[in-house]
Write a protein that binds this DNA or RNA. Structure first.
Lengths: 207, 207, 207, 207
DNA sequence: TATGAATGAGTGTTCATTCAT
DNA sequence: TATGAATGAACACTCATTCAT
């Protein structure tokens, strides 16, 4: 095995472990010791690869952000027919797949955002990027082009992006609490989401 | 001044300070020292009145929960005409007033809920209580009576309760980031909320 | 009820509670809070009556010491016929009664003595007083008058006083551990004690 | 130097320092800070090697117990001629050597035992082990085989084991107080012990 | 006498980080 | 790359003692 590969694997394992620990206990509640244990590496090795606990958080945020923005549903959004419920359903499914793959970090990002003076506002960065793409969607998408941009942003953030992130962050707890399987929950959520957010923002959507 | 009153004040001040510290740094990130400083009391006094840092969190959660459920908009919900946009607007405004008075603790509750194995699920408790009230609303409220309860709950949670709590938790950051005043932001949010969630759940609402 | 009487009672109750707490957890392990709880008084009241936790210990030691040295078996020792087993048995029983009434403090004194640099050496004070009385016993007592005083003191301390104090301190644990009743244990102990210590120091004892 | 040896040294040094601090101030009176200072290590290092202050105490007790029970005088007891004063003297000397090497922990064990509800009863464990060996001594040892076992145990505990432990625990204070050298004190103590305890339990001993 | 409130100095323990190898 | 050992600075919590009434 080439040494770079071994390094890569170890280095990556640490980041994955950090994400899991941060998501399960919050950044402040997580312990570097536990990250090391979970990654099955010596604690000091974490500091060989990374500068600090803080850096792990930042790397996690940027990589999550990049992954999401480079994902298929994100880049291919402009080819979607927003008036077709089937297409929207497919798009939402793809999007949720991408987000759920990084749900650890999304949870974390939400926790950080909830603090009064959040240092990390990845969620806003992603949101702003997404908004940019939306405003450049072709006319064919038939999305409501509101008279004022602030209103559109507020709608998109509080009834669009956030409910989706909330779903990603909280769906497992919901499954546990109400004993429902993932597939049904997701289908129901998308149904609700289409009926509320998309029905409002894409008035011409055909149900 | 009667001794009970003096005690009340100090004891209460600690709880308030705790809410602020927790909301600004998260439960694990908050320091008892800082709570003491903010409340302007001796640190040991905190332990004279409360058992532990943990207990502060729990008391905060239960009192918030009780306050919300006993609030005017909550108890008078069944007298609201859900088909009248004006009434809904008024109800939402009242509700947001109540929630914003406790936004510290709501923020906290959201952070806790985001952890993989959240110990505190006040939000679910409140949600379940609210759902109970909703299902017992009079026919006249004209709310969509969905064929299956799980779907209704999912809609209510992910596109109803959560966006509202998100608004309460994140509106200040939004104001900071996008330089918008509170009144406008709230008006816009309610507008979006009525157009999405209520338009869906109260089909007969007259715009 | 005259005020002095009430005071006496409360003040005394504190001392008794202190003895119990000290005996059960050691001086350093005992908490002033627990003493107050046990005495059913306000914690601050302890400091109204006594200067400090330390003072409680000292008062306990001096009162115990005085009580023992003024006790009947102590003052009437010189009238005992040491050659008569019955008389010795009776004397030992009286002595153990006196000591057991103060076993809390005796336990404490032993704990303190075990520390490398014991501040409180009540046990030595008592021992030295007892030695003085012994050396002034009438010839009739028939106690062995050893050629050298140090040897006599060593015998008296390590095979006389200490086993008795040990019995007082540990007999309850013994009862618990070996399921024996107090009367049998005491009878057996005295039997052993007469057969060992007294058989040696009073050679003319008639069995 | 092999790493295990370096580790051993530091780890061991902590335990030794703990024994000294505990013995000099009692378990509750001892400070982890002082243990660290005495061992010349960083306080946190103590928790790197050991779980808690409590664990230090327990390890001290078990190692002391094992050492004593595996010691030469203990294992070779059955080859001793109990009727020969010289042999007994030698045995006692060996035994005291072993015990004095661990006098810190013995002191500690006595302090713990004196508490009303002692958690650590190592002394009883050792005692019971010793009793087992005694009852299996060959006939040739000529020890008194008492009609009833409880009586034998009580004799052995209160006039045998305890005076010996007391000697180990208190002989240094005695030396300080009465200005006697160790050799003389020990010789006198053994003399007294043979004349009392052994004279009673080994009636055929030739003086 | 009695009490609820308050406090300074600790107390055991933890933690992110660094060192030496 | 990897690790066991080590550390300084906290950290939540406790305690004997005092204050104000």
């Amino acid at each position: 095995m080439a040494p770079e590969i071994a390094e890569q694997k170890t280095k990556e394992r640490i980041l994955t472990a950090a994400a899991a620990e941060f998501a399960s206990k919050g950044f402040d509640g997580a312990r570097v010791d536990d990250i090391a244990k979970r990654a099955e590496v010596n604690k000091a090795l974490i500091y060989y690869y990374y500068k600090s606990k803080e850096e792990l958080l930042e790397l996690l945020f940027t990589s999550m952000s990049e992954e999401i923005l480079a994902s298929k549903p994100m880049t291919e959004m402009h080819t979607t027919d927003f008036t077709d419920k089937q297409s929207l359903f497919r798009l939402m499914n793809q999007f949720l797949d991408v987000l759920e793959a990084r749900q650890d970090v999304i949870r974390l990002a939400l926790m950080e955002l909830a603090k009064r003076t959040p240092i990390n506002t990845v969620i806003f960065s992603i949101f702003e990027d997404v908004m940019g793409r939306m405003f450049s969607l072709p006319e064919a998408s038939e999305m409501r082009k509101p008279e004022n941009k602030p209103q559109a942003m507020i709608t998109e953030f509080f009834t669009g992006i956030l409910p989706i992130l909330d779903y990603v962050a909280y769906h497992e707890i919901w499954m546990d609490r109400f004993g429902i399987d993932e597939a049904s929950l997701r289908a129901s959520f998308i149904e609700s989401f289409l009926g509320t957010h998309f029905a409002y923002t894409v008035p011409k959507m055909k149900f």
